[in-house]
Simulated assay, not measured.
Amino acid sequence: MTCANNTGTEAGTQQGPSDGSGADAGGTRLRAGQLTAETEIIWLVPTDGLDYVREHLDITKRRSGKPPYHGLGRLVGYANLDPATTATRDSGRYDRRTFWLLPTDRSESDDSPYATYAPLEAVDPRTVAPGQPGRLTERAWGSPLPPHRHAPPHREHGSPNAGRHTSARRDSTPTGQLRDRSPADPPADPPGGIRPPTG
């Protein structure tokens, strides 16, 4: 199974703050400091045909492996953490990035409202790499990026239950999952704005 470039090197526009100041630029709002424990990105489906995916930070019981997904739509990818990563919460759970799509998304519906813009959490999967927040590109947006790209005309609340760049390489596993790998990183900074535990 092969996919287009997923090393996170394609030029794009960062939706979230890039300097750790906490300024809300809309969109993903993830910072590289929240993702430093990531060692690989697992894609459950080929991303060649996906203009965008929704990116979010989840609380999970494990550092690696497919996390539970109980919302609408489907889980299309997730991050694995360094095995030496300590829990980021008193409960012993870990903050991990997930990528997902809703039934109304462009790749899922012929009548998607996102034909010429993208939902709040959208990032181009080709810009995703371990430790690096995804970016919004014209391909993800569906048209030339407007000056105020972080304020799309419609925001959908369908969520289920800056930055250092890392090098990554692509390979496939016996199970058909696709991986982006990078060298192990130090533990992540305590992030904010995270969803409730999913399992």
Score class of each variant (00 low, 15 high):
residue 1 M to A: 11
residue 162 A to M: 13
residue 53 V to D: 00
residue 124 D to R: 05
residue 196 P to K: 12
residue 114 Y to H: 13
residue 13 T to G: 05
residue 12 G to Y: 03
residue 191 P to L: 05
residue 99 F to G: 02
residue 51 D to F: 01
residue 34 Q to H: 14
residue 86 T to I: 07
residue 49 G to D: 15
residue 6 N to A: 13
residue 169 R to H: 14
residue 25 A to T: 10
residue 40 E to Q: 15
residue 115 A to R: 14
residue 182 S to W: 02
residue 193 G to D: 09
residue 29 R to D: 11
residue 36 T to L: 03
residue 130 P to C: 06
residue 162 A to K: 14
residue 50 L to G: 00
residue 19 D to V: 02
residue 8 G to I: 08
residue 108 E to T: 07
residue 48 D to E: 14
residue 195 R to S: 11
residue 81 L to F: 11
residue 155 R to F: 10
residue 114 Y to G: 05
residue 175 T to R: 13
residue 108 E to V: 07
residue 13 T to L: 15
residue 42 I to H: 15
residue 162 A to L: 15
residue 112 S to M: 01
residue 122 A to W: 04
residue 149 R to D: 06
residue 79 A to S: 14
residue 126 R to W: 04
residue 133 P to E: 07
residue 143 S to H: 10
residue 139 R to F: 00
residue 49 G to A: 14
residue 111 D to R: 06
residue 104 T to R: 05
residue 163 G to W: 15
residue 147 P to Q: 10
residue 174 P to L: 09
residue 171 D to H: 14
residue 178 L to Q: 10
residue 116 T to G: 00
residue 70 H to K: 13
residue 58 D to G: 09
residue 103 P to L: 04
residue 155 R to W: 10
residue 90 D to F: 07
residue 194 I to Q: 08
residue 53 V to P: 01
residue 156 E to A: 12
residue 102 L to W: 03
residue 112 S to N: 01
residue 134 G to C: 01
residue 44 L to Q: 01
residue 124 D to Y: 03
residue 111 D to T: 11
residue 106 R to H: 11
residue 148 H to T: 10
residue 58 D to Y: 15
residue 144 P to Q: 07
residue 166 T to R: 14
residue 48 D to Y: 09
residue 67 P to T: 04
residue 90 D to T: 13
residue 96 R to S: 00
residue 76 V to C: 06
residue 153 P to W: 03
residue 107 S to H: 13
residue 86 T to Y: 05
residue 20 G to N: 05
residue 115 A to H: 10
residue 139 R to V: 02
residue 53 V to S: 01
residue 54 R to G: 01
residue 71 G to V: 11
residue 19 D to Q: 03
residue 112 S to C: 00
residue 162 A to H: 15
residue 135 R to I: 08
residue 7 T to W: 00
residue 134 G to H: 00
residue 107 S to C: 13
residue 190 P to D: 12
residue 15 Q to R: 12
residue 95 D to K: 05
residue 139 R to Y: 00
residue 29 R to V: 12
residue 72 L to C: 09
residue 181 R to A: 01
residue 177 Q to T: 15
residue 91 S to W: 08
residue 169 R to W: 15
residue 83 P to S: 03
residue 199 G to W: 06
residue 74 R to D: 00
residue 141 W to E: 08
residue 13 T to S: 12
residue 191 P to E: 05
residue 36 T to I: 04
residue 14 Q to P: 11
residue 115 A to F: 10
residue 150 H to D: 14
residue 21 S to W: 03
residue 52 Y to G: 02
residue 156 E to K: 06
residue 54 R to L: 13
residue 36 T to D: 00
residue 22 G to P: 05
residue 126 R to I: 07
residue 189 D to K: 14
